[in-house]
Design a protein around this nucleic acid. Structure first.
Length: 444
RNA sequence: GUCUCCGUAGCUCAAUUGUAAGAGCGGUCCCCUGUGAAGGGAUUGGUUGCGGGUUCAAGCCCCGUCGGAGACCCCA
């Protein structure tokens, strides 16, 4: 007889469980991000995971890969077309407009984080559901905020312990520069079209600027002598960018000017940047990126408002933290006291006692499910407890507890009402078997 | 969407197509019936991702499918 078996479920492709063993990295990163963001004057905002699909088409650009091929879309029962957000900025800007943040003192600074979705083939550092933190400064055109956003993101990454990060930065100008530059690019490539790869032939027609993004050997060789976008910035954009570089120099931040850096979202103007770990193996996965988007608020129906933002990919950061073996404190509260029980009455009393200790802010560990005292003490030992409290039939009736110092094995019977104070006293006296502030890299 | 490699116990991995798929680690229990660490013993573990096919015989070969790792594209 075969038992009918439910098939084993698997998480959807490219979507991962965040298991207890890696939570500490997430916590460390999020805690640091929130604190730093608050310090820089950012206020936290949360927006829906679902938004009108149209928002992203208008915001990110209908011709981008993200919107054209990678968006999870759905039609509701009411007939609305919604999409799982592929990034956070569009939602933040929508919220800015919808809630009238435009009439508050400018700029408005948002800190924003959560899951985002892109239907792509999973790969190194790439998932279909992943998480970003996002920083947006809306309502300020000064170059100083461009630098401030980069500084903030860079500082967070350093603060959590990442090393050897490089900032790549470029300016792609704005409307007044684009046409001129696009013409130059087309001109340059016109005679070379048949040497381009298939994709680039398409790009030549549809979006010539993306030609510079290609990594095919042939195309990469061609772009070496292609006109440089920076040479086609108008005066305002040029000055803006120059100022940014001066700020970065002043701050001593490790940036390289990458004139081929073009981001895949259409809303960017002027400044674009990404932060890449210098990896000996040559992996070039950006863990953070962003840029200025001076037209986005206007394009989404608000009044024209300059803005700057950037986001960090949490999974990529966590992967990098683990690759660099960053030390992160364990999340497990270090319980130095173990509570062991024997018998039904004792078990009931233990449960109550556990609550008492909690109120007194003394972490206590237990293994109530185990009935043998031996097994319980074994657990106590494995957990590295300094004190074991044992309450058996006899103690439960007498309202006492046995207090055992694990190191020495010395025991003493203590009346229940005095146990909290006694434990406090002993904990001060005894040196912990396991250091309290463990910064370990073991998976928990 | 295209391509390459991979899928055996909770974990790390064995198994020339040929007994009834094994080991280490882990878990549980016992040696010790109210007292941890060392040691010893036992035990728990699997429709070999799933579904077909070839074969007397498939973990192994073939097809499909679902996952995973990675490359392209793109991106955090």
């Amino acid at each position: 007889m075969r038992k009918p078996k439910t098939k084993a479920f698997q998480a959807p492709k490219g979507m991962n469980d965040v298991l207890p063993g890696v939570q500490k990295y997430w916590e460390k990163f999020l805690k640091t991000s929130k604190e730093m963001a608050a310090y820089y004057g950012f206020e936290t905002i949360g927006t829906p995971i679902l938004e009108s699909a149209e928002l992203f088409k208008k915001g990110i650009g209908g011709a981008t890969d993200i919107v054209e091929h990678e968006m999870y879309t759905l039609k509701t029962k009411g007939g609305d077309f919604l999409a799982l957000r592929p990034e956070l900025t569009a939602g933040a800007v929508r919220a800015y407009i919808e809630n009238g943040f435009g009439s508050q003192p400018q700029p408005v600074k948002f800190f924003h984080w959560g899951p985002v979705f892109r239907h792509e083939a999973p790969q190194a550092g790439r998932y279909r559901q992943f998480h970003q933190v996002d920083f947006d400064v809306i309502g300020e055109s000064d170059a100083v905020v461009d630098v401030q956003v980069i500084q903030l993101i860079y500082a967070i990454l350093c603060e959590i312990g990442l090393k050897n990060l490089t900032i790549r930065i470029n300016s792609i100008g704005d409307k007044s520069c684009w046409n001129r530059y696009r013409d130059e690019i087309k001109m340059y490539y016109r005679s070379k079209v048949n040497r381009l790869c298939r994709n680039c032939k398409k790009r030549f027609k549809e979006n010539p600027l993306r030609l510079l993004d290609c990594k095919e050997v042939e195309c990469a060789a061609l772009k070496e002598s292609a006109p440089n976008s920076i040479d086609y910035l108008d005066k305002a954009c040029h000055d803006h960018f120059k100022l940014i570089l001066e700020f970065l120099d002043e701050l001593g931040m490790p940036y390289i000017l990458d004139s081929y850096l073009v981001r895949g979202l259409d809303y960017y103007t002027r400044t674009v940047f990404e932060i890449v770990p210098e990896d000996a193996t040559g992996s070039q996965i950006a863990i953070a990126s962003g840029g200025r988007y001076d037209y986005l608020v206007g394009n989404l129906g608000g009044k024209p408002t300059p803005a700057m933002g950037g986001s960090i990919g949490i999974e990529r950061v966590v992967n990098e933290m683990r690759r660099q073996e960053v030390k992160v404190a364990s999340l497990k509260p270090k319980a130095r006291v173990f509570l062991a029980q024997l018998g039904d009455l004792a078990k009931k009393k233990s449960l109550k006692l556990f609550g008492e200790f909690r109120k007194n802010n003394i972490p206590v560990c237990e293994s109530f499910g185990r009935d043998s005292i031996k097994a319980q003490l074994r657990v106590a030992d494995r957990l590295g407890a300094d004190l074991a409290l044992i309450i058996g039939q006899k103690e439960a009736l007498d309202s006492t507890l046995i207090l055992r110092e694990m190191q020495s094995g010395v025991q003493e019977t203590i009346p229940s009402e005095k146990i909290i104070d006694e434990v406090k006293k002993r904990l001060k006296k005894i040196t912990p078997r396991v250091p309290l502030l463990t910064e370990n890299n073991q998976s928990d």
